[in-house]
């Protein structure tokens, strides 16, 4: 009963500060950006400036190159122009297909920052068609897909998990601390402390506010951007679990400090550390252990699953359960600390 009273009061107060409105507006801005500025799929096209030896124009390759309509392949008349053109576009490569002593030569020019491995792969890739046509060529490679589905999300939808994790899940980390310190400054915590209500009721009520805000902004964004292509039940449960986890961590950190300014450093570092998982989310080949152990890493992928047609529910609910358990642990620890320090 006390919990409900506190929660309703906190809800009232947070609507009277601008905070909730700002969060909703921000979510709407993100939606607008996602829908109207971000293309549905990124097309990465690296340009290739190619010079073709005039002697090769009549060949099959020559005809293929001259009749191509791809933007990526640009034929140049002068081999010497290639370095200059490449300087203007640092993502491009250059190449000359020449005929030397009756033999075809692929003279590839890279920028210079590419790695040894990359060069080796390119070298092989250039000759693969030729190699495949040789009589002694043998390919003994077969491919098997392990995953139940090889669904890919559009690049736009792929961005939603990032937003959901950082804004709806981890926003709480910081804001909950701010709420508590605001109460401390106002002195209202002391008034609360001399009533029969318990510390955990106070903390839980704050958690509730963050949860309401997180759910509101998260669902608003998901609905407007992804429409019906979301498993909403799983999304809501995951949002709740990740949000309370973030808030519980925020409470725990805040319990070590007297005011928001002191706590901000630790909170800030924690949020940014968690945000690093985004790098690996976008660059799957770069996943050092130090990022894999961050809770935000599986959180990102769990959110991604709920947007797939056939989500891996085992994965989603394993981590949902884990976040809930961790949330409880951090909450208990925070409660113990706050019992001693809240009114000091």
């Amino acid at each position: 009963m006390h919990l409900l009273t506190s929660f309703l009061k906190d809800l009232k107060v947070s609507f009277k500060t601008f905070y909730i409105y700002i969060e909703i507006i921000m979510a709407l801005i993100i939606v607008l950006v996602l829908l109207f500025v971000i293309p549905e799929n990124f097309t990465s096209s690296a340009k290739a400036f190619i010079y073709l030896d005039p002697a090769l124009l009549e060949t099959e390759l020559g005809e293929e190159l001259t009749s191509n309509t791809l933007d990526e392949i640009v034929l140049v008349d002068n081999k010497e122009d290639i370095p200059r053109l490449m300087e203007e576009d640092r993502n491009s490569v250059g190449g000359a297909i020449l005929l030397e002593n009756g033999k075809m030569v692929y003279d590839l020019t890279l920028q210079g920052y590419e790695s040894e491995r990359f060069r080796n792969v390119i070298e092989k890739a250039l000759t693969v068609d030729m190699v495949r046509q040789l009589p002694d060529y043998e390919s003994k490679v077969s491919i098997e897909t392990l995953g139940e589905s090889s669904e890919r999300l559009s690049d736009r939808i792929n961005m939603l998990p990032v937003f959901l994790v950082i804004n709806s899940a981890f926003m709480g980390l910081f804001i909950i601390a701010a709420y508590i310190f605001m109460d401390k400054d106002e002195g209202t915590i002391k008034a609360f402390a001399v009533t029969p209500s318990r510390v955990w009721e106070y903390l839980l009520s704050k958690l509730g506010i963050i949860l309401v805000t997180g759910l509101m902004t998260g669902l608003l964004t998901a609905v407007l951007v992804a429409g019906f292509n979301v498993h909403y039940v799983h999304l809501i449960i995951l949002l709740i679990a990740s949000n309370v986890f973030g808030s519980a961590v925020g409470l725990f950190i805040a319990s070590f400090y007297d005011n928001i300014i002191k706590a901000m450093g630790a909170l800030y570092i924690t949020i940014i550390t968690f945000a690093f998982a985004t790098i690996s989310y976008y660059m799957p080949s770069f996943t050092p252990l130090v990022i894999r152990i961050l809770p935000s890493y599986p959180m990102l992928f769990a959110f991604r699953e709920v947007f797939l047609e056939k989500p891996d529910l085992g994965y989603v609910y394993t981590y949902t359960a884990l976040f809930f358990i961790l949330a409880v642990v951090f909450f208990i620890l925070a409660n113990e600390r706050f019992k001693k320090t809240l009114t000091a």
Partner: peptide
């Protein structure tokens, strides 16, 4: 039957 040369700028 092709030679491949790789250089950079």
């Amino acid at each position: 039957p092709i030679d491949v040369r790789i250089s950079d700028i």
